[in-house]
Design a protein around this nucleic acid. Structure first.
Lengths: 259, 259
DNA sequence: CGTCTGGTTGATACGACTCAAATTTGGTGG
DNA sequence: CCACCAAATTTGAGTCGTATCAACCAGACG
């Protein structure tokens, strides 16, 4: 098992599933699709943990695709409060089509050391012009991303701390599962309690006590940046988790596009 | 002034700005663009206040465009709690491209009596195939909609009740302004305190007391479904309002596409 | 009129915050 | 390999913002 801070890579599956893995949760891609995708993801960049990939106010120039590591989207208030509004795991695109806008209204930050592919608007246009299946899949990705954003609004607005953290854990667990980064009920989980606090609108102290309660109740184990979900059904129950918003039910998913 | 429940129409500007008004906040449209738009918005439907336009679980079949009245997007939890995750005012599209998905993960509900145009996927495809400027504008619309969603997450996660309600009032005021539905610091505001509670993650009682405080502090007047913002700058200050997320700064906005 | 929805008020309770300090962990350099 | 330091986690005590519960009131409607 790779150590979280080792230089070679942050994750257990450091040469794990390809960048297409998330899109393939929507539809099977042909091998041509896959090679077109990997052709535009050649231009990669490593970003240190806790560094910005893009900062609020920047003119957006690239679409970013997370290859390795975790990132977040966050917004900051003048009084210093910070809200993490999205989390990105490997396979996630950060800002499809954002280059239409004049300036970023939020920042993208690296949670861990991060490998991101940088795709130019021209490459994206070429890709979508030539590969309708990828275009569809990117649209699906965009719709799921905004559905997750809505669920977060619901989560923060209506659930208690205990439910809220449970919900976030389940969401991330399922998202990691769809890109092949869960095994044996376990996954990497590099968020600090401070990150968790910023993502859920709670304080770090309260997150700490809530996690202890989840442990005490036999629902999870969480240490050394490893999450083990002991009883997923019970945790989903606590969280009132309804997976419909992840839209993993697409029929095309089981078809083979290479036929 | 038209009464909210009168049959003729909910708003002061009932034959107000056209459906293109929001898109024109991004870029000037040509008269061809405008007629193409109005051609696909012929199929309209009236929905009673407090009724669903689309319900969670439905197969999405149309893109909806709000012509008159207000609507909301909401999600409900099994324990009965409800979160309004978005609000729609005239000129807003509800769910661009949503027909890619198999089922709705949220509902769209009418706040007032509502006039919505129903656009088929085929019409949308034809529209975007033929009218690149509209395609761009729709993308911009989509990006702004999700930016608003992120700002709501921030709002609920980090701002106090007083700041939070202020922020929502300012946002809606500015959005109404861009579609020409503000005059003299005043606009229609059909939300009940209960709606406001569901949108901000507060209770109706607390919303009530908070509104009273805003009134007491000379920032707003709000009665009979009319909002008067007395001191916009002060209110924006309270809310720590940064309008960047509305992306109203696009250069194309001031160009004339008919040239 | 009586009913209903939306708004207002008061008293009380509690979930989450604050502040402060101690402890543990992980990384760094001698 | 150990000593050190910073970051992250944990604990405790006290407070506060917002929720809860329960009336009551006003206007709109049938």
């Amino acid at each position: 098992m790779t150590h979280p801070t080792a230089d070679a890579g942050v994750f257990s599956f450091s040469s794990g599933p390809g960048v297409a893995s998330k899109l393939e949760a929507f539809t099977k891609l042909s091998s041509d699709d896959r090679s077109a995708l990997s052709a535009v993801t050649k231009n990669v960049r490593w970003v240190d943990a806790r560094r910005d990939v893009v900062s609020e106010g920047d003119k957006p120039r690239f679409v970013h695709l997370v290859c390795e590591g975790w990132a977040c989207r966050y917004k900051q208030l003048p009084d210093g409060k910070r809200q993490i509004v999205s989390l990105f795991v490997p396979g996630d695109f950060c800002d499809l089509n954002v280059y239409i806008l004049k300036s970023m209204d939020h920042s993208i930050g690296a949670i861990t050391r991060l490998k991101v592919a940088m795709i130019t608007p021209e490459e994206m246009n070429a890709l979508t012009a030539e590969r309708p299946r990828i275009t569809q899949a990117l649209w699906w990705h965009e719709l799921v991303t905004t559905a997750i954003q809505r669920e977060w609004t619901l989560n923060i607005g209506q659930r208690s701390a205990y439910e809220r953290i449970s919900h976030l854990l389940v969401e991330l667990y399922l998202r990691l599962q769809t890109v092949g980064r869960v095994s044996d009920g376990r996954c990497d989980f590099p968020l600090t309690q401070n990150d968790l606090a910023d993502a859920t609108g709670l304080t770090a102290v309260h997150v700490n006590r809530t996690l202890q309660e989840l442990r005490r109740n036999g629902l999870i184990e969480l240490e050394r940046k490893q999450l083990h979900i002991i009883d997923l059904d019970a945790l989903m129950d606590v969280a009132m988790f309804n997976a419909n918003y992840l839209h993993l039910d697409h029929e095309g998913r089981h078809l083979d596009a290479n036929a």
